[in-house]
């Protein structure tokens, strides 16, 4: 019985060991040329609907479901959000502070004022922060990447 329990614990420890290596999530990366995040944010119309590969520091991860992460841009204080379908890819919390290469479809999200407030509130709750609805005064549109595959190391 003791041996059985030890074997089961060892089996459960295996994924922990596996997670310490480079993490590959979702579809394998197919692109080799990296597009700068600043380029995508500067010329969104050029990249809308296109498949791109980005690379950068993971500065935030969805704390509830791991369904999005923010990638720092090559330009100071700028970033882009990578959103994935819940459950299809789950970004681990340990990804924060690591470098990620993410492939996905660039898309523009147009939100009414109400939708933008709701989304900001939702994200503030997910990251455990606070949010002041007065900071959103009208419709909001922003660019993000619909993530298809990622490598984090």
């Amino acid at each position: 019985m003791k041996k059985l329990l030890l074997s089961m614990l060892l089996l459960l420890a295996l994924p922990t060991l596996a997670l310490t290596e480079e993490l590959k999530l979702g579809e394998p990366l197919t692109l080799t040329e990296v597009t700068k995040v600043s380029e995508i944010n500067k010329y969104p119309e050029k990249y809308a609907g296109k498949r791109v590969l980005i690379e950068g520091l993971v500065i935030n991860v969805c704390a509830a479901r791991g369904c999005w992460m923010d990638i720092a841009s090559d330009v100071p204080f700028d970033k882009i959000q990578v959103k994935v379908v819940d459950g299809e890819i789950v970004f681990p919390m340990e990804a924060k502070g690591k470098t990620a290469r993410v492939e996905g479809i660039a898309e523009e999200l147009k939100l009414s004022q109400e939708e933008a407030i709701e989304m900001a509130r939702h994200q503030a709750m997910e990251s455990g922060g606070t949010f002041d609805p007065a900071t959103i005064t009208g419709p909001v549109s922003f660019f993000r990447l619909r993530g298809l595959g990622a490598e984090i190391k």
Partner: peptide
């Protein structure tokens, strides 16, 4: 799972 409870991590 909720905004206050992550089933895999203690935050």
């Amino acid at each position: 799972t909720s905004h206050g409870f992550n089933p895999s991590y203690v935050i």
